[in-house]
Amino acid sequence: MVNTTIDLGRGLVLRNPVMTASGTFGYGEEYTDFVDLAQLGGIIVKGTTLHAREGNPYPRMAETPSGMLNCVGLQNKGVQYFIDTIYPRIKDFDTNVLLNLSGSTLEDYVQGAEMVSELEKIPAIELNVSCPNVKQGGMAFGVTTTGISQVVSEVRKVYHKHLMVKLSPNVTNIAEIALAAEAAGADSVSLINTLMGMAIDAEKRKPKLSVITGGLSGACVKPVALRMVWQVSKAVKIPVVGLGGISNATDAVEFMLAGASAIEIGTANFIDPAVSAKVAVGITDYCERFGFQKVTDLIGALEC
C-alpha cells in the first residue's frame, strides 16, 4: 500500500499529487462524467479576476505540433460572481478546490484575495502572475523579481491560507523569480504557465490568433517545463508544483523526480477528459513497481 498523501504546507494536504491546471478543467463540473473528483489531489478552477472580463475576440486557439496556442484572455465573470454562483455548486466536491486568481493592478489582487479568503472550502489560491494573453494580465508582475515580491507580499498580508504562486516561463532566470516569490511569503510555486508563441496562416498572410500572440501548451512544452522545475526546485525550499505538457503517469513521475512535490494536468484534459484520474493511478503503480512506500520518496529522486 503506497502512501500517496502530499502535504504542501499551511493546511493544503493533497490525497495524491495530481491536480488539474487552471483553464483546462473548467470548474470541475464539466468533467464529472469522466473523472471521479475524489480520485484527484485537487482541482484549480478557471483564472478569476476581481472584475468580470470578456476575454479576447475569436479566434482564440491554434493547433501546433504536439500542442496548442491559446489567447483566451482570462474570460471570467469576476470574483463576486464566483462567490455567489459557482462556489455554492462546487464547494462540496470531495477534493481540494483551489482558485486561480489574476489581476491587472496590485489592488485587484489584494481585494480579490481578501474576498476569496472568506471561502471556507477554498484552502488555497494559485496566484496567477503569468498570464501572457492580456496586456495587464499580471505577467508584468511575474517577469521581474521586484514585481513578484511586491504582489506576493501584498497578497500575503491579507491571505492567510496556502498561497501558491504560478510562475511564467517567459523570463531569463526562473529560479530568481521563484526565490523572490519564496522570500515574499509564497507557500509554494507552480510552474510553468504557457510559453509565449505565435502562429501564422501563410495562405492568408494573417496571424491565426485574434491578438497575434498566445500561450503555448501541450506535450511540446514538457522538456522546457521539466528543466525549469528542476532548476527551481534546486533553488527554493518551498514545495514546487510542476506542470507543462504532462500527458500520462510517466510524465508526472518525471516531474516529481525533477523535484516537484505535486503536479498539474493541463492541456491533456482536452485530449483525454479522463486522463487526470489515470495519472493518479499510474503514479501509485510506479511506486509499487519500484518499491517506494510513499509518493513523497519520488520528490527530487533523480539520480545524476
Binding site: 483553464g23 483546462t24 468533467y31 475576440p57 475569436y58 479566434p59 486557439m61 491559446n70 483566451v72 484534459n269
Partner: peptide
C-alpha cells in the same frame, strides 16, 4: 462550427459573441 479544443466548455476557446 468554431475552432474547438476541449469540446466541454472548459477551455473557452470556441466562443461566439
Amino acid at each position: 462550427e468554431n475552432l474547438m479544443a476541449c469540446g466541454l466548455g472548459a477551455c473557452l476557446c470556441c466562443v461566439e459573441d
